[in-house]
Amino acid sequence: MPDLQTYFRTEHMPTIWCAGCGHGIVLGAVLRAIDRLGLDKDRVAIVSGIGCASRAPGYLDFNTLHTTHGRALAFATGLKMARPELKVVAVVGDGDLAAIGGNHFIHAARRNIDIATVCFNNEIYGMTSGQYSPMTPTTKLATTAPYGNLERNFDLCELAKAAGATFVARGAAYYARTLSGLIEQAIKHKGFSLVEAVSQCPTYYGRRNKLGAGADMLEWQRTHAVTAEKATGLSREEMADRFIIGKLYEAEAPEYGEEYGKLIERLKGGR
C-alpha cells in the first residue's frame, strides 16, 4: 500500500466533501496512479475549475491551481504551453466540464494537448446544492428540475472521442482499483485524455432521487457498471441504465505542444 499521506496537505483537511461522497475515492485513485507512475511532485500540476471536485487541488501537495468555473482546461492549456515538462492533470466536475466548460473541453480534445482530465461525474451540481447538470439523466429530480429533468444527458466519453481526444476511459468510484489504473494510463498517455469517473452525491442527488445513502449508490455502481466485452452481449433495454467502464478509446495523434515545439525548432533553422 502506498503512503498516500505524503501527497496530501493534511493541515488543510478534512475535505469539504459530505459523508458518503464518492469524490474522496476518486481522488485516492488519482493519487495512487501518480504514485505508481513515480512522478516528481514538483513536476505535477493539478488544475481545477469550480465545484465540489474542483476543491481537490487544495488538499494536494503539488503545483495546484483552482480557477474559475469551467475554465480549468483553458488555464491548463496556457500552463502546459509555458511549461511543457509539467504533467498537467485537470480535476473537474461534470457541470464544470460539460456545461460551462464545454467549449474548452472539445477544443482541448481537438488540439490533443497533453492534459489528463479526470471528470468527477456525480451527475449534479453539488456545490450549489443540487441543480441538474448536462450529465443528469432524463427524468431525474434536481432542485431546478422539480418535475423531473426534461433534458437528455451527454455521453461524455463519446463526446471526447468525437472531439479528438486520444485516450478515453470510464471508471467508477466502486471499482476504485480499475479507475486508478485507467487514470494511470491517461496520465501516461501523450495527448489529451479523459477519464470519466462515475462518483456519487448522496446529499443532493441520491436523497432527492431516493437512491439511498453513499453505500447504496456505490452498490448501484457495482451492479450497473459493465465492461465493454460484457456490454456487447446485452440488449439495448438491458443496457438502458447500465454504463460501460474500462478503456474506451486510444489512438495516436500529434500532440499540440510537441508540434509547437517542432515549429520553434523549424523556425530556428530558418525554414
Binding site: L65, T67, R71, A76, T77, G78, K80, M81, A82, N103
Partner: peptide, 13 residues
C-alpha cells in the same frame, strides 16, 4: 474567456 485563462496559466508557468 479561454484566451484570458490561458494567459494566466502561462504567466503562472
Amino acid at each position: 474567456i479561454g484566451s484570458m485563462a490561458a494567459v494566466i496559466g502561462a504567466s503562472l508557468g
